[in-house]
Amino acid sequence: METKQKTYTRIKSIFTVVIAVLLLPVTALSNTDHGDPKQDTVIIELNNNSKIVIVTKSREDLASLENYDINQMVKDLNAQLTDSVEYMEIKDGKAYVNDDGEVEMKDWKINDDEVRIKLGGVEVDVDPDKIDDWDEDDWEDRKKVTYETERYDRTTHHFNIDIGLNNWIEGGEFPDANNAPYSIKPFGSWYVGLNSVNRTWVGGPVFLEWGLGINWYNWKLEDADYIIQEGSERIEFNPTPPEVKGQKSKLTASYINASVVPMFDFSRGRRKITSIESGAVKIKKYSRKGFRFGVGGYAGYRIGSHTKFKYKDDGGKEKDKESDNFFLENFRYGLRAQVGWKGVELFAAYDLNEVFSSNRGPLNADGNSAALNAITFGITL
């Protein structure tokens, strides 16, 4: 019982620290090189036929080596080198620089026993063995460094969240143009997607974003005095009795999806990275550079759906929730467009197939089954 209590306390402490850290500001540093003077070379002969070769642009650059943690750099090289390695470079040497006596953090790798939480462009790692001794005052003594990478590794992975608005289109128009009972309320019909995304560099400015995700459509009716019901032959949007005053009427459907989106990234994947270390807590903040856009496709399978109707009946508040298939198509597929500028990423998605099965949609003003296609747009975090 005591062991379980300690485990619970530790888990609670970890998530408390992660939340606190995410609320703390990430301070960026900047380094800029100027000029291109003639380079000089310094060779230091060591034992066992080993050498240290230093190429500098000026005497001032050579003097600046006093600010680097060479010992840590050698330790990292020794840990990574194997018998099969004949040549190796440290491309982000700025990560070893000192600043006013602070040893800046290298591009660290996580240990197996650490906890990592990654959301969008922020990555937080916590060491459970040190968490009990960490408090917010330690943040004042944090180690920090900001640098840029020219390009990702061949493939990188990240987790993101899509937040947007849903609607559906009939014959190129939104249903509210004809005051249809199935018209959607533009604000309040939320779309949420949780995505596990890989980003593969193809060549030049071309990247391929691909992965899996789960998303939720929420179609909220413009007129809450209509209730969504599954009829004998089709989905129906029926008016409520006079004594019932609708407050909210919506249809929700969830899907698991696979997507592939070719991207043109004109900064060629360059990122600004701010690394911060404070005791048990390590943070990396990634900021993309430049302009990027792409268009690709997706396909999904429905894993759940339900309706929700909130209303007042004789003055009392009521809520009805019903789960069923509601003649929804089990499969969906469509086009997705993405555009980004630095840290801002926007998306739009359009289902090429109809939301409801063929001839199972609601009746329109002409008495025909409405062919509705889902459309979504929003921001990616």
Rank of each mutant, 00 (worst) to 15 (best):
D314N: 15
D129W: 08
G294V: 07
F326M: 03
R360Q: 13
L328M: 03
N179E: 14
S287H: 03
N31G: 06
Y68H: 04
M105L: 14
S369T: 08
A177Q: 06
T9F: 12
N238Q: 12
D107W: 06
N368A: 15
L372S: 03
K285Y: 07
D36G: 05
M1F: 09
M263W: 04
R154S: 14
N218K: 02
G300D: 00
L208N: 02
Q72T: 13
A280K: 00
K185W: 03
E89D: 14
Q72H: 10
P241K: 13
E102A: 14
I131R: 02
I54M: 06
S50G: 03
G93Q: 05
D129V: 11
A20Q: 07
K248R: 13
V202I: 15
L335G: 05
Q5H: 08
M263C: 06
S259N: 10
D162G: 06
R10Y: 01
R199A: 09
F377C: 12
I131F: 07
R154W: 12
S189V: 02
E173M: 05
I375C: 02
D162T: 06
V103S: 07
F327W: 04
W341V: 12
A177V: 10
P239V: 11
S267H: 05
V206Q: 01
V261I: 15
D99Q: 13
V197L: 14
D162K: 08
T16G: 08
D223K: 05
E329L: 04
V53N: 12
I184M: 03
I11E: 08
L346F: 13
R234K: 15
V124A: 05
E102V: 15
D223C: 05
G297P: 00
G300K: 01
A28D: 10
K143F: 11
I235K: 01
S183C: 06
L372D: 02
Y350I: 11
K143D: 08
K94V: 09
E173F: 07
K250F: 09
N48Y: 09
K106L: 12
D141M: 11
V18I: 15
K130A: 14
R234E: 09
N364I: 07
N78I: 15
I11M: 08
A370N: 04
I303W: 02
T16R: 08
I256H: 00
S50M: 11
W210I: 06
K144I: 14
G193W: 03
Y152A: 12
D351Q: 03
D33G: 09
D225W: 10
G171H: 00
K75V: 09
T146S: 12
R199D: 06
A79K: 09
